[in-house]
């Protein structure tokens, strides 16, 4: 049941505070939904995700796949007549989903982001080969894309050794800073 009292504002306020975006100006015109190339992989269109937040349907919003499928490349926000930074709202929802420990709809995407940041923490730059190896290891998937991986190595699309930042302390500081 959707409670249309005042209490559902709390969740919307939390997301507004995290993202710094006022999504209540959304007209639900669906321009974002029509422009998104990845809507097929989403259970709710971007404007519908905003609606879920407005209605205070916290669990549904945090557990939906859309917030992880969104790659944040601004097709939606650059067409949005109300100039809502929709990817920033998605970021806010992702942060909240991690913070509240809800079930993550697309664990592969989160796994990928985590591995990217792990290599950045280690070297200051991303190291694609290590990201791919660890990602596949966590997923226990060694067969899919094996041929592609070998082709990329052969074409030298994946460097064997990482490119590193010299000032390791600065990178450590970034990952400690709160």
């Amino acid at each position: 049941m959707i409670n249309l009292g005042n209490e559902h504002h709390e969740f919307a306020d939390e997301i507004k505070a995290d993202s710094g975006i006022n999504f209540n100006v959304c007209l639900h015109c669906k321009t974002c939904a029509n422009g998104c190339p990845f809507i097929e992989g989403m259970d709710y269109a971007p404007n519908a995700v905003i609606r879920l937040v407005q209605l205070g349907l916290e669990d549904v919003a945090l557990e939906c796949s859309s917030i992880w499928i969104c790659v944040g490349y601004n097709t939606c926000s650059s067409y949005c007549p109300m100039a809502i930074d929709i990817p920033a709202v998605m970021d806010g929802l992702r942060h909240k989903a991690i913070e509240k420990g809800v079930k993550i709809a697309e664990p592969d995407v989160l796994n990928f982001h985590t591995e990217v940041l792990n290599t950045v923490k280690k070297y200051g730059r991303t190291h694609k080969l290590e990201i791919m190896m660890r990602y596949k290891l966590k997923k226990m998937d060694f067969l899919s894309d094996m041929g592609l991986g070998l082709k990329m190595l052969k074409k030298r699309k994946l460097d064997l050794t990482p490119s590193k930042v010299q000032d390791k302390k600065a990178i450590e500081k970034i990952f400690k800073e709160k």
Partner: peptide, 20 residues
């Protein structure tokens, strides 16, 4: 000695790292 900009991953899961 430049470092990674944070790419899509930092702003997705870690505000602070994405900022710094």
């Amino acid at each position: 000695d430049w470092n990674c900009c944070g790419s899509s991953s930092a702003h997705s899961i870690d505000h602070n790292v994405a900022k710094h």
